[in-house]
Amino acid sequence: PTIVLKVSPEELKALEKAGVEIEKIEKNEDGELYITLTPEALKKAGFE
Score class of each variant (00 low, 15 high):
I22Q: 00
L12T: 00
N28A: 10
K27W: 12
E10Q: 12
I25T: 06
S8L: 07
P1Q: 13
E26Y: 14
V20L: 09
P39C: 15
K43L: 11
E21T: 07
K13F: 14
I3H: 09
K43A: 14
G31A: 03
I25D: 01
E40D: 07
E48G: 07
G46A: 04
G31W: 03
V7C: 04
Y34T: 07
E48I: 12
Y34G: 01
E10M: 14
K6G: 02
K6M: 09
L42E: 02
P9N: 06
N28R: 12
E40F: 04
K27H: 11
D30R: 14
L37N: 00
P1D: 09
I22M: 07
L33G: 01
G46K: 04
V4K: 11
N28T: 11
A18T: 06
E23N: 09
E40C: 14
G46N: 03
Y34N: 04
P39E: 15
P1E: 11
T36G: 02
E11I: 15
F47C: 13
E32Y: 14
E48L: 13
P9F: 06
G46T: 02
E48A: 06
A41M: 12
T36F: 14
I35S: 00
K17P: 00
K24M: 08
A45W: 10
E32R: 10
A41N: 08
K44T: 05
N28G: 11
K17L: 11
I22P: 04
G46L: 05
E11P: 00
K27V: 12
I35A: 04
V20F: 04
K13D: 11
E40G: 04
G19R: 07
A18S: 08
L15F: 07
T2L: 14
E21G: 05
T38C: 05
K27N: 07
V20N: 01
N28I: 05
T2G: 08
A18M: 14
K6L: 07
T38K: 05
V7Y: 01
L12N: 00
T36I: 07
I35P: 00
A45T: 03
I3L: 05
V4R: 12
E32S: 15
L33P: 01
E26L: 08
E26R: 08
E29D: 11
A45H: 05
K13L: 13
K6H: 06
A45M: 08
I22L: 07
G46M: 04
G46P: 03
I35V: 12
L33I: 13
A18R: 15
A14R: 15
S8C: 09
Y34L: 09
E23A: 09
K24D: 04
E23L: 14
K6C: 07
I25N: 01
L15K: 00
A18N: 09
I35M: 02
T38G: 05
E16F: 15
E26D: 09
E16C: 12
E21W: 13
P39L: 15
K43Y: 10
K24P: 01
E10T: 12
K17G: 08
L42H: 10
L5D: 00
F47D: 06
P39T: 13
K24C: 10
I22F: 10
A45Y: 08
K6R: 14
T2N: 13
T38S: 05
E29S: 12
P39K: 14
E29R: 11
L37S: 04
I3M: 11
A45R: 03
L12F: 10
I35R: 00
T2F: 15
G31P: 01
V4Y: 12
P9Q: 09
S8E: 03
L33E: 01
L15N: 00
E40L: 09
K6F: 10
I3V: 13
E40W: 03
A41E: 13
I25E: 02
V7R: 01
G46V: 03
S8D: 03
G46Q: 06
I25K: 05
L15I: 13
I22H: 02
E32C: 13
P1M: 13
K13W: 14
T2P: 13
A14K: 14
F47G: 06
E29V: 12
K6Q: 05
K13N: 10
E21K: 05
A41Y: 02
E21N: 07
A45I: 07
E10G: 09
T38Q: 05
L12E: 00
A45L: 12
E23H: 09
P39I: 15
T36N: 02
T2D: 05
S8H: 06
E26I: 09
E40Q: 08
E48W: 05
A41C: 03
E10V: 11
L37V: 14
E11T: 15
V7L: 07
D30F: 13
V4H: 04
L15H: 01
L37P: 00
A18I: 11
V20S: 02
E26N: 07
A45V: 06
S8K: 11
E40V: 04
T2V: 12
A18W: 14
L12G: 01
E48S: 04
S8P: 01
V4L: 10
K27Q: 11
P39M: 15
S8G: 07
E23M: 13
L33S: 03
K13M: 13
E23Q: 09
I3E: 02
F47H: 09
T36R: 07
V4F: 11
